[in-house]
Design a protein around this nucleic acid. Structure first.
Lengths: 196, 196
DNA sequence: CAGGGAGGTTAGCGCTCGTTAACCTGAAGG
DNA sequence: CCTTCAGGTTAACGAGCGCTAACCTCCCTG
C-alpha cells in the first residue's frame, strides 16, 4: 500500500469520523449533525459530499469488504506455494486490519442490515469470496478438515481476530506487536485444533 | 437448570421477541409497534409489562450477564479441583449459551451503550467478574501465561465462541453437537497456543 | 352481583432526525 | 472585474417513534 503523505480530503475525514461514531453508538444512534460537528462543519453540509447518511455507511462497508478481499487476493498471488506461509500471511493481514481499523471491524458485522438491498448484496458477496479464499487455504494446510467444518472454523477465527475492539483500549497488554503475535498464535492453534 | 414445562408468560414472550428483533436490526432500528406485533398485541400494550423500551433492553442485558456469571460460578463450585476439567466445563457452558441464545449473544456486545448509566455499570461489573473467573482458571491451567495475556486470550476466545450467529443459520454444519465440539476444540487449541 | 384490577385498544402529542430549500462567500479563471 | 462554482450556512418541513391519555372488557373475588 502506497503511504499517503498528503492531507486527507474532507470526504475522507467524514468517512473516518462517521466510522468511529457508528461503531460507538450504532448507525441509528448517530445524527448527521454529530457527524458534521466531528469534522467541523454542521449537519446538512455533509450533503455536499454524500447523497445521504445511508451512502456513508454503504461506502464504509463496501470499502471494508473490498479492502479485505483485495488484500487477501494480493497475498494469494504473492504466495510462493507454501500453504502454511500463505495462511500465516492471511492471518497477519487480517490482524493488521483489526488492530488498525477497530471501528471499521466493529461496523463490519454490526450494521450490515441497514444497507439498501443492492449494497448489502455486494458486501455479502465480497465477504463470501474472502471467506472462501480462507477456506481453500485452510483446507490445503489441513486436508483432513471437511469443507463445512473448515468454513465454520474460518468464521470462528474471524470472531477471534475481530475481538480486538473488546481488548483494553490503550494496548494495556504487551503492546501492539505483542497483541498481534498473541492473536496470530491463537488463530493458528485454533485451526490446528479444529483439524485434530 | 430446571426444565420449564409451563407456558411462557407474556413478559417472557416479549423479552424473547425483543431480543430477536434487537439482534436483527439494532435497538434503534426496532419500533415498539413491531415488538408488540411480534407477540400479538399492539404497540403501547407493552407498557403494561415494561416501563419503557429501554427497560426491555436493560433487563435483557443484565439477565444475560447475570446468567453467564451465575453459570460460571456454579461450575466453579462444582469443580473437583481439576483446573483442566473446570476450563472445559466453562467452555461447554458458554458454548451452550451461544448456541441456544444467539440473539442474546449478539445483543451482549452490541447494544451495551444504549443503557442508562446505572444499568450499564451493573452489566459491565457482571461481565468483568465473568472474565476474571475465566482468567483465574486459565492461569491455573497455563501458569506460564502472564495475566494481561491471559485476559486478552479470554476475550479472544469469547470472540471465537460468540461467532455462532455468523455460522449458517440452520446448522448446515455437522449439526449442533458437532458444532459445539468443533468450537470446544478450537477454544482449547487457542488457549494452548496462547501459552506456547 | 357489584367492583376492581389486569391487560388490552386507539388517538394523538411532542420530539428527534434526515433531508431539502434558499442563501452566502471566497477563490479561481477568462 | 465580473462570473462561477465548490463548499459552506440557517430555517424549516415531514415522517417516524416513544410514550401518555382515555377508554374498553373480561375475569376473579368478596
Amino acid at each position: 500500500m502506497a503511504t499517503r503523505t498528503d492531507a486527507p480530503t474532507r470526504r475522507e475525514q467524514i468517512l473516518k469520523e462517521a466510522a468511529r461514531l457508528f461503531a460507538e453508538r450504532g448507525f441509528h444512534g448517530v445524527g448527521v449533525d454529530e457527524i458534521g460537528a466531528a469534522v467541523g462543519i454542521s449537519g446538512p453540509g455533509l450533503y455536499r459530499h454524500f447523497p445521504g447518511k445511508d451512502a456513508m455507511l454503504a461506502e464504509l462497508l463496501v470499502g471494508i469488504s473490498g479492502q479485505l478481499l483485495t488484500g487477501g487476493k494480493r497475498r494469494l498471488a504473492e504466495s510462493d506455494g507454501n500453504p502454511g506461509a500463505l495462511l500465516d500471511s492471511l492471518i497477519e493481514g487480517h490482524i493488521d486490519f483489526a488492530l488498525d481499523d477497530r471501528p471499521l471491524i466493529t461496523l463490519h458485522d454490526r450494521e450490515l442490515d441497514r444497507l439498501r438491498d443492492s449494497d448489502r448484496k455486494l458486501v455479502r458477496q465480497l465477504q463470501r469470496q474472502y471467506v472462501e479464499l480462507w477456506v481453500e487455504v485452510v483446507r490445503e494446510v489441513y486436508p483432513e478438515l471437511a469443507e463445512p467444518a473448515a468454513r465454520s472454523a474460518v468464521h470462528s477465527v474471524f470472531g477471534l481476530l475481530n475481538s480486538t475492539p473488546h481488548l483494553g483500549r490503550p494496548g494495556a497488554l504487551p503492546g501492539r506487536a505483542g497483541t498481534a503475535e498473541l492473536l496470530h498464535r491463537m488463530a493458528r492453534g485454533a485451526f490446528a485444533a479444529a483439524a485434530a
